[in-house]
Simulated assay, not measured.
Amino acid sequence: MRRNTILPLGKISPELLESIILPKLGKLNPNVVIPPRTGFDAGVFRINNNLFEVVATDPVLGIPEDYFGFFIFHFAASDVAVFGGLPQYLIYSLLLPPNTQKEKLNRIITQVDAECRKYGVYIITGHTGSYTDVPTILAVSTVLGFTTKDRLITPAGAKPGDKILITKEIGLEFLVMTVYSKLYKKVSHIINKEAAEDIKKQITSLTVVPEAILLSENGYVSAMHDITEGGLSTALPEVANASNLGFIIYEKELPLRPETKLIAEEFSTTPLAFSSTGSLLAAVPKNV
């Protein structure tokens, strides 16, 4: 008798992606330039010979409510930007638990609107509602952006001799979400109240949209990847494998806050595995 296997929490493994999901993508379409694949957080299809559309979708959950609208935009927009796409349109579904106050809804929607206006993005459709089966605020957002054929960037574009660029600190997302959660009590001897307040202020830096757009528009980059679930220890091999290259890093030179190192030591793990949304991994030509 076959045993049912319970899925682990988080994004599914590459093995399950490749065995269950990738073989079942519907009818093949010749206009799809980049279909779903391991290590690629966006898809690309052809509008015409020179114009491509980049599309990414992401769940939004477990986020401090005061910043929920910010991440409805930035999670998916970051994935579009690392492919060289300039975000243009947003679609999102916002699901609310019973008894949600109108003021809370207004705050979330106002945040989404503000980020869209900041980056010139229009919300073309969506769905919002309150349901008894929804235990907490949830959203799924999809961002669409455009790029040209010569400006399309993928994780497979790294070249021999490229330098490895990382923006912000590794594990910053982990630290931010820790100080906002119940887990903070377990690490309060490492992160004092003053440091915790400083870390909380970094929450709106958990996006790679600004730097990804800057790098791609100026032609400074061969490949990019947002360092999300699995941290640098997942993102860097994904870029290397997609590009058919190896890599060398010097761990002592990696941008890490002292608190990140201490927490990793206390829990006998590596900070390189900490989720680091908002930290951009980029392969940069050595002459830049």
Rank of each mutant, 00 (worst) to 15 (best):
L183H: 13
I34Q: 12
G230H: 05
I124P: 00
R257H: 11
I203S: 06
L245G: 10
S276Y: 01
T38F: 13
L206K: 04
A158P: 01
P155F: 08
I12K: 07
K182V: 12
S222M: 08
G10A: 05
T125P: 04
I124K: 11
A212Y: 03
V54Y: 10
Y92V: 09
E211G: 03
I153K: 11
I263E: 07
L95M: 12
E229S: 14
R2Q: 13
T128W: 00
L9W: 05
P35F: 07
A158T: 06
I203M: 06
L281I: 00
K200W: 14
F73T: 05
Y184I: 08
A158N: 01
A77L: 05
N244T: 02
F68Q: 02
P237T: 12
A114Q: 12
S181I: 10
V208H: 08
A264Q: 12
T269G: 00
N99W: 05
T110A: 14
I213A: 01
I109E: 08
T125E: 15
R257A: 12
N29Q: 00
G161H: 10
S19E: 11
A77T: 06
I227H: 00
R46Q: 15
N48Y: 15
P285D: 07
S188E: 14
L280T: 03
D162T: 06
L25D: 11
K102G: 07
I20N: 01
T110N: 13
P8Y: 06
G161F: 10
K286C: 09
I72E: 05
G145C: 10
A114K: 15
V112A: 03
I227E: 03
V284P: 06
G85W: 02
I137Q: 01
I227D: 00
V143Y: 02
L272H: 02
V80A: 00
E169H: 14
G161K: 08
G126T: 03
E211M: 13
P258F: 01
L232D: 03
Y250V: 14
V33G: 01
K185I: 05
K200G: 07
P285R: 01
L61G: 11
T269L: 00
Y92W: 13
E217M: 15
I263L: 07
L280M: 04
D41W: 04
A139Y: 10
G84P: 00
L9K: 03
A139W: 09
T270C: 04
P237E: 12
A273M: 07
L90D: 03
V55C: 10
G126K: 03
S279L: 01
E253M: 13
G219H: 04
P237V: 12
L256S: 03
V140K: 06
F45Y: 15
K193T: 12
T110Y: 09
E194Q: 14
V239D: 02
I166C: 10
Y92H: 14
T260N: 04
T228Q: 09
S93E: 13
T38M: 13
E251Q: 11
K102T: 10
T167G: 02
H225E: 09
A283H: 08
K286E: 14
M224N: 04
L262F: 09
A42I: 02
T132D: 04
Y220E: 11
Y122P: 00
A282E: 07
V140G: 05
L16M: 13
I263F: 09
A56E: 07
G278Y: 04
L256Y: 12
A139H: 08
